[in-house]
Computed example of a mutant assay.
Amino acid sequence: MVFAHDTEMSLQSAVVLANSAEPPDTLESVADLDRFLADFEYSGRHDRTRAELDAVRALRPVLRELLTAERDHAVELVNAMLSEARALPQLVRHEPYDWHVHAVLPDAPLVTRITVETAMAMIDVIRTDEMSRLGVCADEDCDGVVLDLSRNRSRRFCSTTCGNRNAVAAYRARQSDG
């Protein structure tokens, strides 16, 4: 494990959320948001309204900018996010996890909680100088964000789809050369 569990989950959810704007858009309904929250075990308030969905959708380019930023710019973005949300880090424990960090109250708007949890996770990435764990998909037709949590730092594609497409293209290129 490169980071603590809550940091990894926050980073993974931010990448999925940022990539949900890539065609095809995978965050178009409140039901899509419900699935996203269940997949990443978000606790706290969830209004299940179109306004909440629209606020989360509007966060996607902000997260993409943060996740693909150079280290010094990422620091500026993280500090602005935490300041705007008036984040106050504290240790909390709830099922199914032991003590971990939350920096906003559970009744804060969902978009605020996602923003702050992502910013808090990025603090660990920045402090450990692990920005190289984040990047853009190596598929020339994709702009998806990649989070590489592998030991050997070998992840190059944002999804299995992009990886498979490139593997098939490379295979076909080898076959046509032979």
Rank of each mutant, 00 (worst) to 15 (best):
P61E: 07
R153M: 02
A169I: 03
D32N: 12
N166D: 10
T26D: 07
E130H: 04
E140S: 13
V125L: 09
L66H: 01
R133G: 05
A4C: 03
A55N: 14
Q12P: 01
A173E: 12
N19I: 01
M81E: 01
A138E: 09
E117P: 01
V116F: 01
L134Y: 13
V75F: 01
T161H: 12
D98L: 15
S20V: 03
E95W: 05
D177Y: 10
A108G: 14
D47G: 04
P23Y: 03
V92G: 00
P61V: 03
A74N: 06
E65Y: 00
R151K: 13
D177S: 14
A14C: 00
E22N: 03
V125D: 13
A14F: 02
T68C: 00
L110M: 05
S10Y: 04
A119P: 09
D39H: 14
S154Q: 12
L105M: 06
L37Q: 02
V92F: 03
L11R: 06
M122C: 10
V145G: 04
L17K: 05
M122L: 11
N19P: 04
G135Q: 06
D47Q: 13
N19H: 02
E84H: 08
R71I: 13
A14E: 02
L110E: 05
F40Y: 15
E76W: 07
E8S: 14
D139A: 15
A85P: 00
G178K: 15
T112M: 14
R151T: 09
R57C: 10
E28M: 10
G178E: 15
V62N: 03
L110I: 01
R172T: 08
L82I: 02
V16S: 11
M120E: 11
M120R: 10
V15E: 00
R50Y: 12
T112Q: 13
E70R: 04
D47K: 15
M131H: 02
V145N: 01
R151M: 03
G144L: 06
T68K: 04
E140I: 05
T112L: 08
A121I: 10
Y171G: 06
L110K: 00
A21W: 02
V15N: 03
R174P: 14
V56D: 05
H94F: 13
A108I: 09
T160S: 14
S176A: 11
F36Y: 15
V16W: 13
M9N: 11
N166K: 08
A55V: 05
L110R: 08
T160V: 11
A31V: 03
C162S: 05
V168A: 11
V111W: 07
I114D: 03
S132N: 08
N19M: 07
C142G: 01
N152A: 14
E65G: 00
H102E: 14
T68W: 02
D39N: 14
D39Y: 09
M81H: 08
P89G: 11
R133N: 05
E65T: 12
T128H: 12
A173P: 00
L11D: 04
T118W: 11
